[in-house]
Design a protein around this nucleic acid. Structure first.
Lengths: 144, 144
DNA sequence: TACATTGTACTATAAGACTAATACAATAGG
DNA sequence: CCTATTGTATTAGTCTTATAGTACAATGTA
């Protein structure tokens, strides 16, 4: 067989000492890989079993991560076939998008403000973080 | 001038169904009250016991919340006296501040990006959230 | 000192989170 | 159809979290 041996298969790795549960580490790595372009629409994720073997954990743990990703609409999964990055990168209404953003941003702001961070500082930090992500992108000019 | 007794004592309330643990709800409410000016430097928080009675929970749960707040440097606590909003609103070095912000911002960005939110959208959301907070402020050190 | 007020320590327990073992079910392809 | 491959379901074990009960210790003040 000529599998995807020529495509860099994306390196997952787990840090058992981090305190962050395995399934969450997987979710984060997938999210991040999408964000910086290492995963694109339609790409197949490693199979539940292969990734489980690779990471030396139980398949169920991988499955759980994939499941949450599917619930969030980030991946599509089909039994017998595999799990793939969602074609229609999240289908939310504008209202839902706003709400989602608010949900993500609000706790951050609450904490940042009580720590005395000025709005400008937070804005800069956000810009910096995005800069780090966009470095790998090529034809994703306007995410807007 | 208004002594503490007729200053609105800040209304705490808990939502048992939210899934968010009590002690975290208390922490968040204190953080938020600081952020929007309802708590200012030097203010005394309700005593462990009084708040426990008020919320109908165990004093230890309140104590835990106050403890975490103290660890973060947000309040000062003295046995026999009470718990107070920290005078020196967090004493972090610049390096620590940067690291802290990064820690707060990074997960947000990772998620926002994988949901397809553009940087500009996130920036707007941050501005909006800060606007909501600043409404109550008056002569508070300018958040720039 | 005496005492009321404040936070703290220790312990117990119930609930939930996390992972794994194992067996099941759907799909693709010969 | 078979069968290998994929994800799924069920169950259980272990650990951590969250809260409470109860007793202790420090502080301020008369």
């Amino acid at each position: 067989m000529a599998p995807e041996s020529d495509r860099k298969p994306i390196q997952f790795n787990l840090d058992p000492k981090s305190g962050v549960p395995y399934y969450k580490q997987i979710i984060l790595q997938v999210e991040f890989a999408i964000a910086d372009g290492r995963f694109a629409t339609g790409d197949q994720l490693p199979t539940v079993r292969s990734l489980a073997v690779d990471l030396k954990i139980n398949p169920n743990t991988v499955a759980r991560a994939y499941n949450e990703l599917e619930i969030r609409g980030i991946v599509n999964t089909q039994q017998g076939t595999g799990t793939f990055i969602s074609d229609k990168q999240i289908k939310l209404t504008e209202v839902e998008r706003e709400g989602m953003l608010d949900t993500l941003v609000r706790p951050l702001i609450s904490k940042a403000a009580s720590y005395g961070f000025a709005m400008a500082e937070v804005l800069d930090a956000v810009r910096d973080a995005y800069k780090g992500i966009v470095q790998n992108e090529e034809e994703q000019h306007d995410i807007l």
